[in-house]
């Protein structure tokens, strides 16, 4: 596979300068960390720019690093340029207290449910999303299950006693 990291990095740096925080290769994927507020501009740029044409949103998901103080939450975008078969990953990180991200539904219709899922599991609010509700979990779950502090098992259960056997 041709080395696409420098090509895309130059383009992005030209257009966004310091807003591209890092660019690196992770296995077979070029990965760019972007400032949160510029993410939609970056995606739009990659969508429109004739040499880039990342016109397919492969995946969008959240991630939680409780130990990264000030950067606990993240959203990860996988974009695909089908013409040239380039795949890239964009990441944004932001604090738990400011979990508001601009929505990508303006560019990709596919982002609608993916963002709802991310909201459902991480409590990340997508600003401008047309219909931001829980999608897989029940409405009164009271918590965001994929945050690391959320217990895997219902903590209120008394019928499961781990005292003797642990796990």
């Amino acid at each position: 596979m041709e080395d696409i990291l420098p090509v895309i990095e130059t383009k992005l740096r030209e257009a966004f300068g310091e807003d591209i925080i890092s660019a690196e290769m992770m296995r077979d994927f070029p990965v760019f960390t972007v400032k949160k507020d510029r993410i939609i501009d970056v995606v739009k740029f990659l969508y429109d720019e004739p040499e880039m044409q990342f016109r397919f949103l492969t995946d969008l998901c959240g991630i939680h690093f409780p130990d990264n103080k000030g950067q606990e939450l993240g959203v990860i975008y996988h974009l695909h340029n089908m013409r040239r078969n380039w795949r890239i990953r964009l990441r944004i990180f932001f604090p738990l207290t400011d979990a508001v991200v601009p929505t990508l539904t303006t560019v990709f219709s596919a982002a609608n449910w993916m963002e709802r899922e991310t909201y459902d599991f991480f409590g990340i609010t997508f600003k401008g999303h047309p219909d931001l509700r829980r999608i897989l979990n029940v409405d009164d779950l009271g918590g965001f299950p994929l945050l690391k502090e959320f217990p895997l098992e219902d903590p209120t259960r008394v019928d499961k006693d781990d005292k003797m056997f642990g796990r």
Partner: peptide, 30 residues
Amino acid sequence: GEVYHCVEGGNGELGFYLVSDGGRTPYRLH
């Protein structure tokens, strides 16, 4: 490390986004 791998499933691109922190379980799997 972080890997994304996809296969052509019965319905289309079935992708696995795996983040490992070196522990015995995945740190995050999407």
